[in-house]
Design a protein around this nucleic acid. Sequence first.
RNA 1: CGAGCCAGCCAGGCAGUCGCUGGGCCUUUUUCUCUAUUCUUUCACUUGUGGUUGAACGGGGUUGGGGCCGAGAGGAAAGUCCGGGCUCCAUAGGGUAGAACGCCAGGUAACACCUGGGGGGUGCAAGCCUACGGAAAGUGCAGCAGAGAGCAGACCGCCUAAGCUUCCUCGGAAGCCGGUAAGGGUGAAAGGGUGGGGUAAGAGCCCACCGCGUAGCUGGUAACAGUCUACGGCAUGGUAAACCCCGUUCGGAGCAAGACCAAAUAGGCCCACUAUAGGCGUGUACCCGCGCUGUGGGCGGGUAGGUUGCUAAAGAUUUAUGGCGACGUAAAUCGUAGAUGAAUGACUGUCCACGACAGAACCCGGCUUAUCGGCUGGCUCACUUU
Length: 125
Amino acid sequence: MLNFSFNKSLRLLDATAYKAVFDDAQLKVSKQQVLYLARKNGTTTPRLGLVIAKKNVRHATERNRIKRILRESFRLQQHQLGGIDTVVLARRGLDQLDNSALHRLFNQLWQQLYEKSLKAEKKAK
RNA sequence: CGAGCCAGCCAGGCAGUCGCUGGGCCUUUUUCUCUAUUCUUUCACUUGUGGUUGAACGGGGUUGGGGCCGAGAGGAAAGUCCGGGCUCCAUAGGGUAGAACGCCAGGUAACACCUGGGGGGUGCAAGCCUACGGAAAGUGCAGCAGAGAGCAGACCGCCUAAGCUUCCUCGGAAGCCGGUAAGGGUGAAAGGGUGGGGUAAGAGCCCACCGCGUAGCUGGUAACAGUCUACGGCAUGGUAAACCCCGUUCGGAGCAAGACCAAAUAGGCCCACUAUAGGCGUGUACCCGCGCUGUGGGCGGGUAGGUUGCUAAAGAUUUAUGGCGACGUAAAUCGUAGAUGAAUGACUGUCCACGACAGAACCCGGCUUAUCGGCUGGCUCACUUU
């Protein structure tokens, strides 16, 4: 039985961790409303960081909703990803989507990210 | 039943699966650590004590894993517009400047809030609105229209008594000099209103009533009110969310406040050691040469980071009691989010009225703004029926 919990070890916890991803984004996946930046973290578990700017998503309730659904989708996909640190940035218009559309969007992007990371590994070899 | 007014309450429910945050309890050698007892190693001597080495078996704390239990956004959590608590800094006292407030009384920790009362406005009414001190200290401002807009003003109209001139039928007529704020007209506003007297025509010019002002009296804690009394012929147009004047209040900065612990790197201070030394690198090794460089320890400030502040509170509910009321007092009961790259959820099913506005960030009291609907109570008006 896999463990689908989502505790602090699966999050980016401070500015240095965020900065590492921003400065060395090996993998990028994006759609009109979101951008994923990611890099290897040298461990076997993935970690997630969120940047939902007030500028792009006006209301606090909408920001909370997006973050919750993002974390939920990450929680369910975590075993596919391996040791990757990811920062997700919201763009304008993300708050226009409803919950099910958000789920679809995020799952699609996690899939793309996973495939890209496999390719990158093959190249390295 | 229709239209409307006021006050208060609710903010999708239920079930299943998977999660998040911080509590409580249990469990697990998972980490580090403290410690009782027993045995053991070795040393000292005052010969059974103390130190020391290791082990066994307990107990506690801490960290990690697992399990169970119960808790977990709002009426506005929002805007950050007021007021306070709390924290640090400053502070003899007074004044100036500046800001806020502005009918009266009360409530409160305090307020720009609330309650009660008064004045004004508005609605048939229940009610609602009210920035409601001073224009009789000074300065300023006011489009268009209009003759004139603040020591008023003759455009039309009205008058021709007095004075002058001319004519004359000696009654008067015309003109000049003028008079006049009743009427028309302009304007948001034209310097009290109505009636009478008066007059050439008029005019607070005089009178009555109404209104206004001042002083008194009466009622009221007061704002204020009065069908009361006296006096004043009437003066003082508007604007103070224009400057201003008067009265009252106000020290500053904020939880990124403040307190504590505290890496790495750089720098500071102190102490010890060392100057033909030592360390590192290098010439194949030694001797020796060359290049680079003081070494070790401690202290304090302080950054990242962590802990705390951090939720028990001017607290809620109920009852009693004082008060018209806001609210106060007393007793009993309850113990109600505390995150920090930031939790309080996601999915599925189901029911219905088909779910609005919207997310705590030190904490309270207000105000303001947003809001799908639903429910409860009280009241007003209109209609119908009896």
